[in-house]
Design a protein around this nucleic acid. Structure first.
Lengths: 123, 123
DNA sequence: CCGAATCCCGCTCGATACTG
DNA sequence: CAGTATCGAGCGGGATTCGG
Protein backbone atom coordinates (compact mmCIF):
# COMPACT_ATOMS: atom_id res chain seq x y z
CA UNK A 1 0.00 0.00 0.00
CA UNK A 2 2.85 2.32 0.79
CA UNK A 3 4.42 1.36 -2.48
CA UNK A 4 1.21 2.06 -4.31
CA UNK A 5 0.92 5.47 -2.76
CA UNK A 6 4.46 6.38 -3.65
CA UNK A 7 3.92 5.30 -7.22
CA UNK A 8 0.72 7.24 -7.37
CA UNK A 9 2.48 10.28 -6.05
CA UNK A 10 5.38 10.01 -8.45
CA UNK A 11 3.45 9.05 -11.55
CA UNK A 12 0.27 10.98 -11.08
CA UNK A 13 -1.25 11.26 -14.54
CA UNK A 14 -1.53 14.98 -14.08
CA UNK A 15 1.39 16.65 -12.31
CA UNK A 16 -0.40 19.88 -12.65
CA UNK A 17 -2.26 19.70 -9.42
CA UNK A 18 0.90 18.91 -7.51
CA UNK A 19 2.63 21.73 -9.32
CA UNK A 20 -0.14 24.12 -8.41
CA UNK A 21 0.59 23.37 -4.79
CA UNK A 22 3.89 25.09 -5.37
CA UNK A 23 2.20 28.42 -5.79
CA UNK A 24 -1.22 28.09 -4.27
CA UNK A 25 -0.47 28.10 -0.59
CA UNK A 26 -1.87 30.98 1.31
CA UNK A 27 1.23 33.13 1.61
CA UNK A 28 3.44 31.96 -1.22
CA UNK A 29 2.21 34.43 -3.77
CA UNK A 30 2.45 37.40 -1.46
CA UNK A 31 6.01 36.54 -0.53
CA UNK A 32 6.82 36.08 -4.18
CA UNK A 33 5.53 39.51 -4.99
CA UNK A 34 7.81 41.10 -2.44
CA UNK A 35 10.87 39.17 -3.51
CA UNK A 36 10.22 40.09 -7.10
CA UNK A 37 11.66 43.49 -6.24
CA UNK A 38 14.93 42.02 -5.09
CA UNK A 39 16.72 40.47 -2.15
CA UNK A 40 15.05 41.19 1.14
CA UNK A 41 15.59 40.63 4.84
CA UNK A 42 13.34 38.38 6.87
CA UNK A 43 12.17 41.22 9.09
CA UNK A 44 11.33 43.38 6.10
CA UNK A 45 9.33 40.58 4.55
CA UNK A 46 7.45 40.25 7.78
CA UNK A 47 6.59 43.93 7.75
CA UNK A 48 5.60 43.96 4.11
CA UNK A 49 3.46 40.83 4.00
CA UNK A 50 0.51 42.03 5.96
CA UNK A 51 -0.86 39.68 8.57
CA UNK A 52 1.68 36.91 8.19
CA UNK A 53 2.90 35.29 11.39
CA UNK A 54 6.50 34.34 12.01
CA UNK A 55 5.58 30.72 11.80
CA UNK A 56 3.86 30.97 8.43
CA UNK A 57 6.49 33.25 6.94
CA UNK A 58 9.25 30.89 7.95
CA UNK A 59 7.31 27.89 6.77
CA UNK A 60 6.53 29.50 3.43
CA UNK A 61 10.13 30.52 2.88
CA UNK A 62 11.36 27.04 3.77
CA UNK A 63 9.05 25.46 1.24
CA UNK A 64 10.04 27.89 -1.46
CA UNK A 65 13.67 27.24 -0.64
CA UNK A 66 13.13 23.51 -0.76
CA UNK A 67 11.45 23.82 -4.14
CA UNK A 68 14.40 25.77 -5.47
CA UNK A 69 12.41 28.95 -6.01
CA UNK A 70 14.05 31.01 -3.31
CA UNK A 71 17.61 31.25 -2.06
CA UNK A 72 18.58 31.93 1.53
CA UNK A 73 21.61 34.01 2.50
CA UNK A 74 22.86 33.95 6.07
CA UNK A 75 25.42 36.45 7.31
CA UNK A 76 27.16 35.55 10.57
CA UNK A 77 26.62 38.94 12.18
CA UNK A 78 25.32 39.81 15.62
CA UNK A 79 22.41 40.09 15.60
CA UNK A 80 21.95 37.63 12.74
CA UNK A 81 21.12 38.83 9.26
CA UNK A 82 19.21 36.66 6.81
CA UNK A 83 18.17 37.63 3.32
CA UNK A 84 16.03 35.91 0.74
CA UNK A 85 15.99 36.21 -3.02
CA UNK A 86 14.31 34.52 -5.95
CA UNK A 87 16.38 32.01 -7.85
CA UNK A 88 16.37 31.73 -11.64
CA UNK A 89 13.72 29.07 -11.32
CA UNK A 90 11.72 31.36 -9.09
CA UNK A 91 11.95 34.17 -11.60
CA UNK A 92 10.69 31.90 -14.34
CA UNK A 93 7.47 31.54 -12.38
CA UNK A 94 6.82 35.25 -12.28
CA UNK A 95 5.46 35.52 -15.80
CA UNK A 96 2.87 32.71 -15.51
CA UNK A 97 1.79 34.18 -12.21
CA UNK A 98 1.35 37.53 -13.89
CA UNK A 99 -0.93 35.87 -16.41
CA UNK A 100 -3.22 34.80 -13.61
CA UNK A 101 -2.88 38.21 -12.06
CA UNK A 102 -3.99 39.89 -15.27
CA UNK A 103 -6.99 37.62 -15.41
CA UNK A 104 -7.82 38.70 -11.89
CA UNK A 105 -7.68 42.38 -12.74
CA UNK A 106 -9.80 41.85 -15.81
CA UNK A 107 -12.42 39.46 -14.50
CA UNK A 108 -12.53 39.31 -10.75
CA UNK A 109 -15.36 41.81 -10.65
CA UNK A 110 -17.35 39.45 -12.80
CA UNK A 111 -16.72 36.67 -10.32
CA UNK A 112 -17.92 38.81 -7.44
CA UNK A 113 -20.99 39.82 -9.41
CA UNK A 114 -21.71 36.20 -10.29
CA UNK A 115 -21.51 35.33 -6.62
CA UNK A 116 -23.97 38.03 -5.66
CA UNK A 117 -26.38 36.89 -8.35
CA UNK A 118 -26.01 33.27 -7.32
CA UNK A 119 -26.49 34.00 -3.63
CA UNK A 120 -29.52 36.12 -4.35
CA UNK A 121 -31.07 33.48 -6.58
CA UNK A 122 -30.55 30.88 -3.87
CA UNK A 123 -31.68 33.06 -1.01
CA UNK B 1 -17.87 41.75 13.70
CA UNK B 2 -19.83 40.36 10.80
CA UNK B 3 -19.70 43.75 9.20
CA UNK B 4 -15.99 43.96 9.67
CA UNK B 5 -15.43 40.61 8.06
CA UNK B 6 -17.49 41.54 5.05
CA UNK B 7 -15.55 44.72 4.59
CA UNK B 8 -12.28 42.89 4.92
CA UNK B 9 -13.41 40.44 2.31
CA UNK B 10 -14.51 43.11 -0.11
CA UNK B 11 -11.59 45.49 0.28
CA UNK B 12 -8.67 43.16 0.68
CA UNK B 13 -5.62 45.14 -0.46
CA UNK B 14 -4.55 42.34 -2.73
CA UNK B 15 -7.33 40.58 -4.57
CA UNK B 16 -4.89 38.24 -6.09
CA UNK B 17 -4.83 35.78 -3.27
CA UNK B 18 -8.60 35.68 -3.11
CA UNK B 19 -8.71 35.24 -6.83
CA UNK B 20 -6.26 32.38 -6.63
CA UNK B 21 -8.71 30.64 -4.40
CA UNK B 22 -11.00 30.50 -7.39
CA UNK B 23 -8.71 28.04 -9.10
CA UNK B 24 -6.54 26.58 -6.40
CA UNK B 25 -8.92 24.25 -4.66
CA UNK B 26 -8.00 20.65 -4.82
CA UNK B 27 -10.25 19.55 -7.68
CA UNK B 28 -11.06 22.74 -9.52
CA UNK B 29 -8.33 22.50 -12.09
CA UNK B 30 -9.01 18.89 -12.93
CA UNK B 31 -12.69 19.58 -13.46
CA UNK B 32 -11.80 22.55 -15.60
CA UNK B 33 -9.63 20.42 -17.80
CA UNK B 34 -12.46 18.03 -18.49
CA UNK B 35 -14.98 20.75 -19.20
CA UNK B 36 -12.56 22.42 -21.56
CA UNK B 37 -13.54 19.74 -24.05
CA UNK B 38 -17.20 20.66 -23.91
CA UNK B 39 -20.39 20.08 -22.02
CA UNK B 40 -20.32 16.98 -19.89
CA UNK B 41 -22.61 14.96 -17.67
CA UNK B 42 -22.06 14.70 -13.95
CA UNK B 43 -21.53 10.97 -14.08
CA UNK B 44 -18.97 11.30 -16.85
CA UNK B 45 -17.09 13.93 -14.90
CA UNK B 46 -17.02 11.59 -11.95
CA UNK B 47 -15.53 8.84 -14.09
CA UNK B 48 -12.96 11.10 -15.71
CA UNK B 49 -11.71 12.95 -12.67
CA UNK B 50 -9.83 10.18 -11.02
CA UNK B 51 -10.31 9.80 -7.30
CA UNK B 52 -12.88 12.50 -6.78
CA UNK B 53 -15.72 11.73 -4.40
CA UNK B 54 -19.31 12.73 -5.05
CA UNK B 55 -19.14 15.25 -2.30
CA UNK B 56 -16.07 16.99 -3.58
CA UNK B 57 -17.18 16.91 -7.20
CA UNK B 58 -20.52 18.44 -6.32
CA UNK B 59 -18.92 20.97 -4.02
CA UNK B 60 -16.38 21.94 -6.66
CA UNK B 61 -19.04 22.32 -9.32
CA UNK B 62 -21.19 24.43 -7.00
CA UNK B 63 -18.32 26.79 -6.31
CA UNK B 64 -17.49 27.11 -9.97
CA UNK B 65 -21.12 27.76 -10.73
CA UNK B 66 -21.35 30.35 -7.99
CA UNK B 67 -18.26 32.08 -9.35
CA UNK B 68 -19.81 32.19 -12.80
CA UNK B 69 -17.20 29.93 -14.36
CA UNK B 70 -19.47 26.96 -14.99
CA UNK B 71 -23.07 26.66 -16.08
CA UNK B 72 -25.42 23.94 -14.96
CA UNK B 73 -28.06 22.40 -17.22
CA UNK B 74 -30.80 20.27 -15.72
CA UNK B 75 -33.07 18.21 -17.94
CA UNK B 76 -36.26 16.98 -16.29
CA UNK B 77 -35.86 13.42 -17.46
CA UNK B 78 -36.20 10.23 -15.48
CA UNK B 79 -33.63 9.47 -14.33
CA UNK B 80 -32.40 13.05 -14.11
CA UNK B 81 -29.79 14.35 -16.49
CA UNK B 82 -27.43 17.13 -15.48
CA UNK B 83 -24.74 18.61 -17.64
CA UNK B 84 -22.05 21.16 -16.95
CA UNK B 85 -20.21 23.50 -19.26
CA UNK B 86 -17.75 26.36 -19.01
CA UNK B 87 -19.16 29.84 -19.34
CA UNK B 88 -17.47 32.61 -21.28
CA UNK B 89 -15.85 33.73 -18.06
CA UNK B 90 -14.71 30.19 -17.45
CA UNK B 91 -13.18 29.97 -20.89
CA UNK B 92 -11.27 33.18 -20.31
CA UNK B 93 -9.47 31.46 -17.46
CA UNK B 94 -8.21 28.64 -19.62
CA UNK B 95 -5.34 30.56 -21.17
CA UNK B 96 -3.80 31.83 -17.90
CA UNK B 97 -4.11 28.33 -16.54
CA UNK B 98 -2.28 27.03 -19.55
CA UNK B 99 0.55 29.43 -18.80
CA UNK B 100 0.98 27.82 -15.40
CA UNK B 101 0.66 24.44 -17.02
CA UNK B 102 3.45 25.20 -19.45
CA UNK B 103 5.66 26.31 -16.58
CA UNK B 104 4.95 22.97 -14.95
CA UNK B 105 5.96 21.00 -18.00
CA UNK B 106 9.11 23.03 -18.39
CA UNK B 107 10.28 23.29 -14.81
CA UNK B 108 8.60 20.81 -12.52
CA UNK B 109 11.51 18.41 -12.86
CA UNK B 110 13.75 21.14 -11.55
CA UNK B 111 11.50 21.53 -8.54
CA UNK B 112 11.64 17.83 -7.80
CA UNK B 113 15.41 17.85 -8.18
CA UNK B 114 15.69 20.86 -5.89
CA UNK B 115 13.65 19.00 -3.30
CA UNK B 116 15.87 15.97 -3.46
CA UNK B 117 18.96 18.13 -3.10
CA UNK B 118 17.44 20.05 -0.20
CA UNK B 119 16.30 16.93 1.62
CA UNK B 120 19.69 15.32 1.17
CA UNK B 121 21.52 18.39 2.41
CA UNK B 122 19.28 18.47 5.49
CA UNK B 123 19.35 14.74 6.17
C1' DC C 1 -28.75 9.36 -11.90
C1' DC C 2 -27.63 13.23 -9.22
C1' DG C 3 -27.08 14.74 -5.56
C1' DA C 4 -27.88 16.32 0.08
C1' DA C 5 -26.80 15.36 4.84
C1' DT C 6 -24.09 13.60 8.41
C1' DC C 7 -20.11 12.04 10.93
C1' DC C 8 -15.43 12.47 11.87
C1' DC C 9 -10.44 12.43 11.36
C1' DG C 10 -6.21 14.82 10.22
C1' DC C 11 -3.86 18.68 9.11
C1' DT C 12 -3.34 23.58 8.64
C1' DC C 13 -2.96 27.67 10.64
C1' DG C 14 -3.00 31.21 14.36
C1' DA C 15 -1.63 32.58 19.02
C1' DT C 16 1.68 32.49 22.34
C1' DA C 17 5.92 31.78 24.53
C1' DC C 18 10.84 30.81 24.40
C1' DT C 19 16.01 30.93 22.34
C1' DG C 20 20.91 31.74 20.21
C1' DC D 1 17.02 39.54 14.47
C1' DA D 2 15.50 35.35 13.02
C1' DG D 3 13.85 31.92 14.13
C1' DT D 4 11.86 27.15 17.09
C1' DA D 5 8.26 24.83 20.22
C1' DT D 6 3.91 23.89 21.69
C1' DC D 7 -1.03 23.90 22.01
C1' DG D 8 -5.70 24.23 20.32
C1' DA D 9 -9.49 25.65 17.20
C1' DG D 10 -11.19 25.29 12.50
C1' DC D 11 -11.92 23.29 8.37
C1' DG D 12 -10.98 20.58 4.26
C1' DG D 13 -12.11 16.43 2.70
C1' DG D 14 -13.13 11.20 2.95
C1' DA D 15 -16.66 7.60 4.06
C1' DT D 16 -21.16 6.61 4.52
C1' DT D 17 -26.02 7.01 4.38
C1' DC D 18 -30.36 8.83 2.72
C1' DG D 19 -33.62 11.23 -0.80
C1' DG D 20 -36.06 12.87 -5.37
Amino acid sequence: MNEFEIVAEAESPCHYRRALEVVSSKWTVLVFYELEEGKMRYSDLKKRVEGVTQKMLTQTLRQLERDGLVERFVYPTVPPTVEYALTGLGNSLIEPMRALHRWTDAHYDNVLEARRAYDQANA
